[in-house]
């Protein structure tokens, strides 16, 4: 049986085993998005990139091993490439976690966190289902425009999000969020006023104010 060395760990595998399966056997974590064993192995997301010591890149889900080989699965350049690939995919996703029933069970959200991709709002971690959203009850929550990562601790504790983790800067997400605020009857200026409390000294707040200005009909704000 061929021996596969991944990040210095050696495992013996059946000929034809994918690098992804070999890595799992070796206890090396490789992020992935599109692969569903037995159902889809088309290697279209390219998030599971690995490389040979010589630097040749492969998708781990679709490269099969028939002889002794060595791979690198953990290196800064690999993580950067995975992040860029995922960011490009996520650009096509309509991020509206506030309306999504999947919440924490979403692989996009968990991968975005793992790869450090920006654009996921606190709503993705909110324990309340969309039907019980605080915004629907007239409570101005900043979860839609605030970066995820806190496990929505304030909402879980009985309050609303005040934006302490900083703003999302992806314009399309902000645009949809401000549209939603308007639909639910919140004045855009009141949203910005509340956001000022934690964000006033942040450069990234300029992006939020710019999108808010357009949303309220004030041109390029």
């Amino acid at each position: 049986m061929p021996k596969v060395k991944i990040d210095g760990r050696v495992v013996e595998v059946e000929p034809g085993t994918t690098v992804l399966a070999a890595a799992e056997k070796a206890g090396v974590r490789i992020p992935r998005l599109c692969v569903v064993p037995g159902l889809y192995e088309g290697s279209s997301c390219r998030v599971c990139l690995v490389k040979t010591p010589a630097g040749r890149l492969f998708p781990a889900c679709n490269y099969r091993v028939y002889r002794d080989e060595e791979f690198v699965a953990t290196s800064p350049d690999l993580w950067e490439m995975r992040r860029v690939n995922f960011e490009l995919l996520l650009a096509f996703h309509r991020i509206e976690c506030w309306q999504c029933e999947r919440k924490g069970a979403c692989s996009l959200v968990s991968l975005a966190k793992e790869l450090g991709v920006e654009g996921i709002p606190v709503c993705s971690e909110c324990p309340l289902p969309p039907s019980e959203c605080l915004l629907r009850r007239g409570i101005l929550c900043l979860g839609m425009i605030t970066l995820a990562g806190c496990e929505a601790e304030c909402v879980a504790g009985g309050g609303e999000c005040w934006g302490c983790r900083g703003p999302i800067t992806r314009a399309d997400v902000l645009e949809r969020a401000f549209k939603r605020y308007s639909e639910l009857g919140f004045d855009v200026t009141s949203v910005v006023s509340k956001a000022e409390i934690f964000w006033n000294s942040l450069d990234s707040f300029g992006v939020v104010k710019s999108v808010a200005g357009r949303a309220s009909g004030g041109g390029r704000g």
């Binding site: 601790e153 304030c154 909402v155 879980a156 504790g157 009985g158 309050g159 609303e160």
Partner: peptide
């Protein structure tokens, strides 16, 4: 009782 100890989010 209150969500967390510091800056209790449940109180308003």
């Amino acid at each position: 009782v209150c969500g967390r100890f510091i800056h209790m989010p449940s109180l308003g």
